[in-house]
Write a protein that binds this DNA or RNA. Structure first.
Lengths: 93, 93
DNA sequence: TTGACAGGCAAGTCGATGCTTGCCTAACGT
DNA sequence: ACGTTAGGCAAGCATCGACTTGCCTGTCAA
């Protein structure tokens, strides 16, 4: 089982989560393309693939196989640990 | 300005936050002692000092000088970025 | 004033990690 | 069948980050 906090430590991985939050069920190549065009990240496919593996180990991303495509889904459930561990002070108005 | 996510990536730093959440306004030596006795962490003072510097740069810890003592305080405000960036799915009952 | 105590600064070591490179397997279309 | 497309595996490199080591500054008490 991976470390949620370590998974969040990398900026590229956080951008991948942003992408999946905006558009669910993307393939690896889609994520690569959109990272390049919309976020200005010029990373190779392998680099992204390894990042996704880390996110998957942390439970932040789940995958679904379909033929030769592999769709990725965002799962924010592990993020509950953050707020559970250190209760966030309420916002003032 | 430091990176909140990178600051949370290290287990020792997370334990320091736990300690400050449980007992506020501790000095560096107090933190060292309690990490050793209560959490089984045998880190040197310098190591802890550097960790606290990272937490401080991330805004998770604030300090208050008083004579030769320096008291540390937990500030969970930066953690809001986590839940703000990726809305956490509601818990099912 | 001198020693003990709380903390800071900086260089060096070493393992972790992000990235590349090269090659491989599997599914689909024509 | 064959080429293309989607993805995987593994070794090598290079940088980053945690930790140590050694020494220095500032505060307080006797």
């Amino acid at each position: 089982m991976g470390d949620v906090f370590k998974a969040l430590a990398d900026p590229t991985r956080r951008t991948i989560l942003d992408e999946l939050a905006e558009r669910d069920a993307q393939t690896l190549f889609e994520i690569c393309a959109r990272l390049a065009t919309r976020h200005g990240l010029a990373s190779t496919r392998q680099a992204i693939s390894q990042h996704i593996a880390v996110l998957e180990a942390a439970g932040l991303v789940t995958t679904r196989r379909e033929g030769r495509y592999k769709f990725h889904h965002l799962d924010t459930t592990p993020l509950r640990e953050v707020t559970r561990r250190w209760p966030i002070t309420e916002e003032e108005e």
